[in-house]
Design a protein around this nucleic acid. Structure first.
Lengths: 348, 348
DNA sequence: CTTTTGAATTTAAACGATTAACTTTTGTAA
DNA sequence: TTACAAAAGTTAATCGTTTAAATTCAAAAG
C-alpha cells in the first residue's frame, strides 16, 4: 500500500504538500497539484484513515449501541441513522448487546443490565468513536449506567432518565389519545383498554392519553374496562375474555400492543363474534402481525426511522459544535387505519 | 486522557515497560508491574487503540456489508456474526447500502448495483477493517464488483460467483426436496409448485429439489402444476386461482415463499375451500407472516443466524492464518411444521 | 536595485502506541 | 572473587498522517 511519502517522492514535493493537496486547506500551485494527483492515480494511493485519526484525534466513526438488533424497531431505526449519515463521511460502529439472548427473566435483566450496557459503552469508548447513539428499548429507569464523559451521546427510542441529556423519543400519550379519539368519533362509548405491564412508563403514558380522551368526551371509564396485561399474547386473550364476560361488554377494545390485540382477536373469535361488526379492536406498534391478521388491525405506527435520523442529526450538530435548540425531542406517531374498527351506528 | 507516557512517568519506568505490562508478552518484575497497574488504575488510563492500530497495522474491526439492514434475514444473520465475535475482541463496522430505499425497479437495480456495492466495499477498505463479511441477498450473478485484494472476505447468504472465494450459504435444493417429501409422505400425489422469479438461482434450485423428490416417488409433474410466480403476494394468489380452476386441481400447493403462500390462502378461501382439510399449502422462508396466518403455515426456516456465525468463524480462521478446510459451506434449513397440511387419507 | 509582500513549499514536531536491539541488573556457578 | 547467563528494563525507530512555523521564491513596490 502506497503512503504519502511515496506519493511525495513520485511527484517531487514534500509530504506536507501532498497533504495540502488532499485536504485543500492550503494553496498549492496548479503544477504541483496535478503532479500529486497523477501520482495518486498511478499508485492507487488511499489515505490511511487510522494515521489521520491518530493525528487529528477524530475517527469519524459513530458508535451505535443497541440492546438487540433483532428487537422490533431496531433495524428500521438504525436504517434511519444511516439515512442521515449518508454523505457525511461518518461510519457506524455497531455494538449489539444481544440482550434478547442473554437475559431470560426480568430479575436477571434488572441485575445484569447496567453491567452489560456499561461494557458496550466501554467498547465504543475504547474504539475512540466521535459520538454515540444509545438505542434503549428498556422502559424502566435504570441505575448504574456510566455514560462516557468525553463523548457526546444521544438517546434514541427510550427516554433518558437524566434531564441534562439529549434524546429522541416518540409520543406515547398523544398517540393513545388520538387512537382513543378515533374510536370515540366512530361512535363508541364503551371502550375498554388493555394496558401493558404496569411498571413500564410507556404503559402509563398511553393510559394517560386514553383517560384524557375519554374524560374530554365525557365518557365514563369503569374500572372493569381497564385491564392490566403484560404485553404478551396470552394476557390479551385472557383480558379480552374477561371483558366479553362483563354484563355490559365494551363495543371497542384498545390493546396497547399488537400482540395483545391479536390475543383479543382469538378471544373474540372464540365467542363466535365478528371483528369489526360486533366489536372493534385496535392495537399499538404496527408490527408485521398487524397487517397479517384478518381483518387488518388498525394500529399506531412508531416513527422508528425518524427517531434514528433525528438522533443522528442531533449528534451531528453536537459534533460540529453547533447549538442544539431542542435537546429532548418527542416525535409523533401515525395511526394506520385498517379494517378492525367500524362506526358504531352501522350495527344499531 | 492519560497516555502511556504519563503512566510511565507516574510509575517510574519507561513506556516500553508499560507496554510490556499491558501486552504480557515480556517479563516484567512484580514490583514494576504493580506500580504500573496502580498508575493505570489511578489515572483511569485506557490504551489508545487508534495508535495501536497504526503501529501494528491491524484494527481488530470487521466490516460487515449488508444490502439493507431491513431485509428479512439480515438482523438475525448479523446477530449470528456478533454471537461468534463475542469475546474475540473484534468490533463490527456495519456498512448498510440501503438498497431497498434506493433501487426502485429491476432495471435500475442491475445497473446501479455494482457501483453501490463497490462504494460500500471501498468505505470499509478505507476504514482499514481486518476482514469483510459481505451479506449478499441478490440472487443473480452480478458483474463488475471489485473485491478488495488485501482484505479477507467471506460471502454470506448468497453464493459467490467466483469459485476461489469463501462463502456460507443455505441449502435450497435439499430443503425443497425435504418439504416435497413431507407432502408425499402425507399421501399427496397431486402436488403443485409455485416457483419464484424464473431468473433467480434460488427458484431454480428449489425447483430441482422438488422435481427430484417427485421423480424419486414416481409421481408425475404435469406442466400445469408448475406455475411461475415472481415472489410477490399477487402472483401467489393468481397462480393458486389458476391451479384451482384445473380439471384436476392439486391436493397440495408448495409455494416457494411465504408471501406467495399467503396469496394461495386468499385464493383458496375465496373459493370457499378450507386449509388444510381441502387443500394443503406450504411455503418457504418462515417470515413472521407464516405464524400469523391461520392456520399456521408449514414452511422452511433459513438458518440465518448460523450463516452469520459460520461466516464469522470462517473469517476468524483466515485472520488467524489458519487453514480453512471448507471454503464454501452450505447449511441445511429446518422445516417448521404448523397446521397448513394434513395427511391425504383423512379426507377420503 | 533593494525591499516588501504574499504565495508556495518545506521542515520537523507531534499523535500514542509497539518492538527489535541494546544495556543494566541480578543470580548462579566456577 | 570473577565470569556468565538470564531476567528486567531502556532506547530509539517506526507506523502514516497533520500542521505550526520556518523557509524559499517570485512578483510588485519603492
Amino acid at each position: 500500500m502506497a503512503t504519502m511519502k511515496e506519493i511525495a517522492a513520485l511527484s517531487d514535493v514534500s509530504v506536507a504538500t501532498v497533504s495540502h493537496v488532499l485536504s485543500g486547506k492550503k494553496n498549492v500551485s496548479e503544477d504541483a497539484r496535478s503532479r500529486v494527483l497523477q501520482a495518486i492515480e498511478l499508485t492507487n494511493y488511499k489515505l490511511n484513515t487510522i494515521a489521520k485519526s491518530l493525528r487529528i484525534n477524530k475517527t469519524h466513526i459513530i458508535g451505535v449501541l443497541v440492546e438487540d438488533i433483532q428487537g422490533l424497531p431496531v433495524p428500521e431505526l438504525v436504517d434511519g441513522i444511516y439515512q442521515r449519515l449518508e454523505q457525511t463521511g461518518y461510519q457506524v460502529l455497531l455494538s449489539n448487546l444481544r440482550l434478547l439472548k442473554k437475559l431470560y427473566n426480568q430479575y436477571e435483566q434488572l441485575r445484569q443490565y447496567p453491567g452489560i450496557v456499561n461494557q458496550g459503552l466501554q467498547l465504543l469508548e475504547d474504539a475512540r468513536v466521535d459520538g454515540i447513539i444509545y438505542v434503549a428499548m428498556h422502559d424502566r429507569r435504570i441505575e448504574g449506567i456510566q455514560l462516557p464523559v468525553n463523548i457526546p451521546l444521544v438517546f434514541a427510542y427510550a427516554d433518558s432518565s437524566d434531564p441534562g441529556s439529549f434524546s429522541v423519543t416518540y409520543q406515547n400519550e398523544s398517540s393513545a389519545y388520538a387512537m382513543t379519539r378515533l374510536l370515540i368519533e366512530q361512535g363508541h362509548r364503551q371502550i375498554a383498554l388493555i394496558v401493558g405491564h404496569a411498571s413500564t412508563p410507556a404503559a402509563n403514558q398511553r393510559l394517560t392519553g386514553f383517560r384524557q380522551a375519554m374524560d374530554e368526551a365525557g365518557l365514563p371509564v369503569p374500572s372493569d374496562y381497564i385491564r392490566w396485561g403484560d404485553w404478551e399474547y396470552h394476557s390479551g386473550l385472557e383480558e379480552a375474555e374477561a371483558l366479553l364476560s362483563l354484563t355490559v361488554p365494551p363495543t371497542a377494545i384498545f390493546a396497547m400492543n399488537d400482540l395483545m390485540a391479536s390475543g383479543c382477536y382469538a378471544a373474540i373469535r372464540h365467542r363466535g363474534l365478528r371483528i369489526p361488526e360486533d366489536i372493534s379492536v385496535v392495537g399499538f406498534d404496527n408490527r408485521e402481525i398487524a397487517s397479517c391478521l384478518f381483518p387488518g388491525l388498525t394500529t399506531v405506527a412508531l416513527p422508528s426511522r425518524e427517531i434514528g435520523s433525528t438522533a443522528a442529526q442531533q449528534l451531528l450538530l453536537r459534533l460540529e459544535g453547533q447549538p442544539v435548540d431542542t435537546p429532548m425531542i418527542s416525535l409523533p406517531c401515525r395511526i394506520i387505519q385498517r379494517d378492525s374498527t367500524m362506526p358504531l351506528p352501522a350495527r344499531r
